[in-house]
Design a protein around this nucleic acid. Structure first.
Length: 217
DNA sequence: ATCCCGAGGG
DNA sequence: CCCTCTGGAT
């Protein structure tokens, strides 16, 4: 128990951020988009799937419906068929089409650049809103998804299980100019090494800072 | 079988 | 906190 405390004191947040930067210097959003509207739609679609599958579907969708107005011109049924391969297609179709209506009625067809308005869109929670703010507008955000949550818990950066509480703790801990990159790096790390089931601790660059590894060995 | 870069609802 | 929505990959 003493060794753990010392270990954690040695490897504070700066060390973790530094290793993350060296390990995943190019971490970035892997969704394909050309403007805030496309990113908003792609991000709503990305729940419970991979970016690669979303990109396949949006390549077709954005070609046919590049604006909220165009998206409402095809039938909901046609819309569902286009996005069907990614799953959860009925819920997502309904949310996206309602979001398009809201964008037109209350935002002149533009995607709002603040969290409060974004979260009012159906199908848009903190995570989706954060991704849009960060990647479409360059506004500092550190949205917490399942990867970020899991990795932050394991590294001892937060003990909370509620994503919004974890977000608060992380943003308090990390300099604002690093929020966006850190979000992407934690996700890459969660996907590459820090898997939900079987984390690859022996080859993890963060193992010396991580309570999971140091307490297991 | 079980898991995906979630959100909304009970 | 738990459940459901969905299909596809593994």
């Amino acid at each position: 128990m003493e060794p753990n405390r010392l270990m954690m004191r040695d490897c504070k947040i700066n060390r973790i951020l530094c290793i993350l930067e060296q390990t995943y210097p190019e971490a970035h959003c892997e969704l394909n988009f050309r403007n805030p509207f496309e990113l908003l739609v792609a991000t709503i679609l990305s729940a419970q799937t991979t970016d690669q599958k979303v990109n396949k579907v949006t390549a077709v969708l954005f070609e046919r419906c590049p604006t909220p107005k165009k998206m409402l011109e095809i039938t909901p049924r046609e819309f569902e068929e286009i996005i069907r391969p990614i799953g959860l297609f009925r819920t997502k179709a309904k949310n996206i089409l309602q979001t398009c209506e809201l964008l037109i009625e209350e935002h002149h067809g533009d995607v709002p650049s603040n969290l409060d308005d974004l979260v009012k869109m159906p199908g848009v929670g903190r995570k989706t809103a954060g991704v849009v703010l960060a990647n479409a507008y360059g506004i500092p955000a550190l949205p917490v998804d399942t990867h970020v949550l899991r990795v932050a818990n394991r590294l001892g950066l937060s003990r909370e299980k509620d994503p919004s509480k974890v977000e608060k703790e992380l943003t308090a801990l990390i300099p604002m100019e690093l929020w966006i990159d850190t979000h992407h790096r934690l996700i890459f790390h969660g996907r590459r090494l820090c898997h939900a089931r079987k984390p690859e601790c022996p080859v993890c660059p963060l193992k010396d800072c991580c309570p999971v590894f140091t307490s297991a060995s």
